[in-house]
Write a protein that binds this DNA or RNA. Structure first.
Length: 552
RNA sequence: CGGGGCGUAGCUCAGCCUGGUAGAGCGCUCGCUUUGGGAGCGAGAGGUCGUCGGUUCGGAUCCGGCCGCCCCGACCA
């Protein structure tokens, strides 16, 4: 089909919007793909919606290919369902409908499980249902254009199986479908073990796409054998240079020294040979000491895993009461509460606070001077090695473009979605959830596919296949070129506006269709047009007749 | 929710410090000339300066409240 730029609502902007920071945010707004309505609320303009639909269609095809069946569930969700599963109170991220017993669905596990109650027999399993629908979430802080929003369209799929084997099969089928989706979108994305959230199932995988702007850190081994979310990555730090070993811990006066760095300087030792004490207070009021190496940072996510429950950093008063000293001089020796030490502290002797202001202990050894529980607590950092093969680890900011996880009978039990199994037993359905946000995928694609002049869409998701630029005098030839391509089934954007050549070229680069065809003065002489590859900039001259013969 | 920044024309911004009644560039409309990488000349349209209140003879400008937006952090099925 041919689409005439002179008649489209395609407001491109010469300048970057003042409030944009992320590349995808700037380019999608400048290119006229999206417009902001309010914080985290966006309208997809005609061009942006075309791209969104292309991404959707790829997702749809891959879901159908693994037996998915498309449905559509309502946005309004009875709160009663959420009360039944116990999520009503936890759902502080949901928008309530004031005066009505509904909430605007932030996700659809409850609703889909409500329908799954119609499944009666193992003979009907497995099932895989999915829909594209609006999700509303009270995000604390929307940001980065489409990267984090309060309302968005999500493809959420849900599987129901009879046993663990089926669950695993459904999960892996979806994992593979997701890989195909990202490959078709030419989006570089990695499946990594997800941080264990509230669901906490062992099948919980995030798909992270490296991008210039994002909220996740993707940790990846140079050898390609390891990829993980920075929050839970198990990276191997360098081995510290230890000072001489002591038979027993001894005090050393360290006046005014409260940081590990200054402590190491003062003693002339490796910071990695010191330990850092992070006291936290549990909900019951007891103080637990988390201990990491002096050159490491405590990962709150890992601490949460090691110490379930909502613990928080202890207050100065609590620290004083529990240790008899202030922050900066704290250590495990002599502390009566629980100590959780990072694995890096298992072997070797470290300098630790002496629980006396201005005093530290050298030669402190786990097992001899204190008895900790060991856990992985450290935040991975640049310079760490791969836990599998010792390779160099790369750290990249990334966007979560998909999340798949298994929720077992978390919803089916309370909602009484059961089936009769082969053995005559009534059992709860075992569910899985598979989410992907086409809008976020769009933004991630732009993050990965752009240059100084604008977006470089992969052909599979480009708003149009070809952008035909008609320059003065050659309108006729441009029309012919557009017709020829349209006849081949291509979607053609024909720039027939009364604008300068430079402006048309700049817009074409910004909008980023994979191919640009220019008909101008030269075309009047030889009947040929310039065919330019957006990604490579390569240009060749072809006759309009040859356009149809070329492979695209 | 904590920290920081910003709200002036459709867009990007200046003016504010040192109060005197609003500007530039781009875009838009009309005319003429131009026309292969964001044209030139001429003539126009367009803003209750986020909002409410205070100080003042006088507020875009000074003071306070509120609202909105962006960034960092917290949070994130």
């Amino acid at each position: 089909m041919i689409f005439r730029a002179s008649q489209l609502f395609l407001p491109t902007l010469r300048d970057d919007p003042a409030d944009a920071d992320a590349v995808s945010h700037k380019l999608l707004v400048r290119g006229g793909f999206i417009r902001q309505v309010s914080a985290g609320l966006w309208t997809f303009m005609p061009l942006g919606w075309r791209v969104h639909r292309k991404v959707e269609q790829i997702v749809r095809e891959e879901m159908d290919a693994i037996g998915g069946q498309e449905i559509l569930m309502p946005l309004l969700t009875p709160i009663e369902l959420w009360e039944t599963t116990g999520r009503a109170n936890a759902a502080n991220f949901a928008f309530r409908v004031e005066g009505h017993p509904y909430l605007l669905a932030p996700t659809h596990e409850e609703t889909v499980t409500f329908h799954a109650r119609e499944i009666q027999s193992y003979k009907q399993l497995p099932q895989l249902w999915y829909h594209f629908s609006v999700k509303d979430r009270e995000e604390p802080r929307p940001r980065g254009g489409l990267l984090r929003v309060r309302e968005f369209i999500m493809k959420d799929g849900y599987s129901f199986d009879r046993d663990d084997e089926g669950v695993k099969r459904s999960f892996e089928a979806n994992r593979e479908a997701y890989k195909k989706i990202f490959a078709r979108c030419e989006l570089e994305a990695y499946d990594v073990q997800a941080e264990s959230g509230v669901m906490g199932g062992k099948f919980s995988v995030d798909f992270l796409a490296p991008s210039g702007s994002g909220e996740n850190v993707l940790v990846r081994c140079e050898n390609g054998d390891y990829a993980a979310d920075g929050d839970i990555a198990q990276a191997v730090p360098h081995v510290p240079t230890f000072p001489e070993t002591l038979v027993s811990a001894e005090e050393v006066v360290t006046p005014g020294i409260t940081t590990c760095e200054s402590l190491a300087d003062f003693l002339g030792i490796d910071v990695a040979a010191t330990s850092k004490a992070m006291p936290v207070t549990k909900p019951d009021g007891s103080v637990v000491l988390a201990l990491v190496r002096g050159d490491d940072r405590l990962s709150e996510m890992k601490l949460y895993d090691a110490l379930p429950g909502a613990s928080r950093p202890s207050t100065d008063e609590e620290i004083r009461a529990a240790f008899g000293a202030s922050g900066g001089s704290l250590g495990p020796v002599g502390f009566s509460g629980e100590v959780i030490a990072d694995e890096t502290l298992r072997d070797g002797q470290f300098v630790a606070g002496a629980n006396k202001d201005g005093v530290h202990l050298r030669g402190v050894q786990a097992g001899r001077d204190f008895t900790p529980r060991f856990a992985d607590l450290r935040e991975p950092k640049e310079g760490d090695r791969c836990p599998l093969d010792g390779g160099h680890l790369n750290f990249q900011t990334a966007v979560e473009v998909g999340h798949i996880f298994n929720f077992g009978s978390f919803y089916s039990k309370p909602l009484e979605a059961t089936f009769l199994d082969e053995d005559g037993q009534e059992k709860p359905l075992l569910g899985g959830s598979y989410g992907i946000g086409p809008g976020r995928v769009m933004a991630a694609i732009v993050e990965q596919h752009n240059d100084d002049n604008g977006i470089v869409w992969p052909a599979s998701v480009a708003p149009y296949d070809v952008h035909v630029v008609a320059l003065p005098g050659a309108e006729e030839i441009a029309e012919q070129a557009a017709e020829a391509l349209s006849a081949l089934g291509k979607d053609v954007l024909l720039d027939d506006r009364d604008q300068r050549a430079g402006e048309k070229f700049a817009d074409a680069d910004l909008i980023g269709c994979p191919m640009r065809i220019t008909a101008g003065k030269k075309s009047l002489e030889d009947g040929k047009v310039d065919v330019r590859d957006r990604a490579t900039g390569e240009e060749r001259r072809l006759s309009v007749a040859d356009l149809g013969k070329e492979a695209w």
